[in-house]
Design a protein around this nucleic acid. Sequence first.
DNA 1: TTTTGCTATACCTTCCCGGTATGGCTAATA
DNA 2: TATTAGCCATACCGGGAAGGTATAGCAAAA
Lengths: 294, 294
Amino acid sequence: MNFKQLEYFAAVAEEGSISGASRVLHVAQPPISRQLALLEDELGVTLFLRTNKGVALTEAGRCLYQHSRQMFQNLRTMADSVREVDAGARGQLKLGVIYSDVQIAASLLKEYHEKYPQVELYVRMGAPGDLLDDLERGELHVLLLRSQSERSYGLRERVLGEDPLELVMRAETDPAPGEEAVPIQALRDVPMCLLRSDDLWGYSRDLLEECRRAGFTPNVACHCYDTPMEMQMVQAGFGVGFLPKSIVAAHPGSPVYTKPVLEFSARSYPILVWESDPYQSGCVKRFLELTDPT
Amino acid sequence: MNFKQLEYFAAVAEEGSISGASRVLHVAQPPISRQLALLEDELGVTLFLRTNKGVALTEAGRCLYQHSRQMFQNLRTMADSVREVDAGARGQLKLGVIYSDVQIAASLLKEYHEKYPQVELYVRMGAPGDLLDDLERGELHVLLLRSQSERSYGLRERVLGEDPLELVMRAETDPAPGEEAVPIQALRDVPMCLLRSDDLWGYSRDLLEECRRAGFTPNVACHCYDTPMEMQMVQAGFGVGFLPKSIVAAHPGSPVYTKPVLEFSARSYPILVWESDPYQSGCVKRFLELTDPT
DNA sequence: TTTTGCTATACCTTCCCGGTATGGCTAATA
DNA sequence: TATTAGCCATACCGGGAAGGTATAGCAAAA
């Protein structure tokens, strides 16, 4: 069986004669006769009753004709669908986001969805390490993380903006009330809630380092595994935190506020991270294009 | 696009390598490479990412693979369905029946349906002339009629049995009470309900002719257009009827009974009638085979 | 560094497909 | 009745596509 044979068959069925089909198809009559015969041989079925003034479908032929129309329809939708997937207009986009940046993610995805409404979106919130594991396993396509430097994971990344890191506090835990900025010496003995210092949350480590350079060991009252947790601890009056300013600004109505550290201006960079290999779907390409400065 | 290309593509997708597919398909590796390239060119889409240890589907390739599986499934069901229609195991059978023989039709169709349960059955009850019109227009495939001779309508027909024609009466209208058979002379002046005499109901005409040969003009009190109507008239005591014996026997509990006419033994033959041309579906063939004496 | 295994390219051969010519058949027409 | 016209089937030929063989390029494993 062959698409060409089906095409010839359908044309003959519609024209009611082989000659008519040959005129429509711009193909000579004998090839069509032969392809029809081959099709009938293969199916073991008589599809047409030949008369001297054309051909007429048998019951089996009518059945085949209905199926062939369905088949051509499927063929067209298949090709269209594949091209759409390739162009990124259809498919799946799986994004991983750290807890603190769901709002950035939501606005990015909103813009993307307006442009490519047919793409199925999957969003997962998690800790950076878990997200990176999923990215490596191919279960996520792109991550929205934070970075304080241009460290490379063997992955491609793109900086979306920058965000100053500031101390987060309530009035009663403010180590320097009345000041615009907190001198680092004022942090001596102040209980602090910091993000767990590992290679993913380098700026906490940098702050601790800065304190030691200033001559004291900071009082880390609580190590937090993620940003919202730290926010909750600070709001509860547990101590001062150290977070990207925009994250705190995203909690209006909360009794916390931020101040920079006088001698230490760290920054957090929201970044997109994705696999660097060429194994990249059209959806991911289109999504990344949205944030491409070029 | 081509079925072969799709087949190669699917094999490569399943094997994860062109070489693997070539082993499965028993085709050398270069032709498969080329067909893949042609398919990609035609779609304008990259379907595989080639590495030195095989190939991996792109998103577009995955999409095509899903559609191709669907396509092959459709192909198989299409071929099976066409063969079933050709064999008569699937399709439509449209039967026309005269009013008096619905019971015969039902038992025929019951037997047929047990053998070919997938065939859609259409049964229509009607007057013989209407049924013949529908047969000619192709709206019915086979008719179950009555005939008293082997007259041909330019159609094929097959006699299913025979049925003596007898007088139908109630006790109070019996023209020869106490007798086993009615002498034709006893019908003189007896009111009769007969089927309309035309070329389709010849035996009514034959009875009238016989009466005239016997020297009297019969008293036809009512001309009926169909058998059930005549039965009703006889049951109502309107006169004597003249019908196939089995039709009366099919009304048990009715106060009517039958007797033969002494000098006149006509018979009614239930017949199947169908188009004589080769334009005959498998369902019709199989149905006719059920009653084929050979 | 060598080997192995994969894909892509080049070239050849074969076979399938389409075109032309022709015959058989039927129905309409002269 | 003879003829013509139109349709389908068959025979045959030529071109192009598809498959096979040989080989190169390349990367990972040995």
